[in-house]
């Protein structure tokens, strides 16, 4: 079945099984290795992508549901202003450990900055609650996102 969608701002189409997971389409057919599989059941958020501007776990989504929609992966977002800002903050705080969960965290944090962006710890915790990190204890992730919110504020929300 032919499925067409927008992937990181480019129009793409693919002939595939309608039930193939979006995660597998991205990794196998588009070689987008930044989308990681860890739990395979929607618990950990390592495979998070933006689907029509909302974070979704791509391991739980069949490709048929992506028809006509917009998909962004972490690599796609890394080229945007807020993506760059977040990467700088994650880097500066030495927040990244094994890094396997971070592309998912980037996508979710990007969505938070874009839709709310308040430097509020409780809100940030809620926003990131669908992403699991086993290495960090989350503290430095909060610190990074908080820092990105503050910096984005000081640029007048240039996003």
């Amino acid at each position: 079945m032919k499925i067409s969608f927008t992937l990181n701002n480019k129009k793409v189409s693919i002939d595939t099984e309608p039930t193939k997971r979006l995660l597998d389409v991205l990794r196998e057919d588009f070689k987008m290795m930044e989308v990681k599989e860890s739990c395979g059941e929607g618990e950990c958020g390592a495979c998070t992508v933006l689907l029509d501007d909302k974070p979704v776990t791509s391991c739980l989504l069949n490709i048929i549901h992506v028809e006509g929609k917009k998909v962004f992966t972490s690599e796609g977002l890394s080229k945007k202003f807020l993506g760059k800002l977040l990467i700088d903050c994650f880097d500066e705080t030495n927040a990244v450990q094994c890094g396997f969960c971070f592309p998912g965290f980037l996508v979710t944090s990007y969505h938070y900055l874009k839709t709310d962006g308040e430097a509020n710890l409780e809100k940030i915790k809620v926003a990131l609650s669908g992403n699991i990190c086993r290495c960090t204890g989350y503290q430095k992730i909060f610190e990074s996102v908080m820092l990105a919110c503050l910096r984005n504020d000081s640029t007048g929300g240039k996003s």
């Binding site: 290795m33 990681k36 972490s74 990467i87 030495n94 990244v96 094994c98 592309p103």
Partner: peptide, 17 residues
């Protein structure tokens, strides 16, 4: 700063799969 932080966040750092 960690050598590998940026590529890990973007997702270009390679894991086995």
């Amino acid at each position: 700063r960690k050598f590998d932080a940026r590529p890990k966040v973007i997702g270009t750092h390679k894991f086995v799969d």
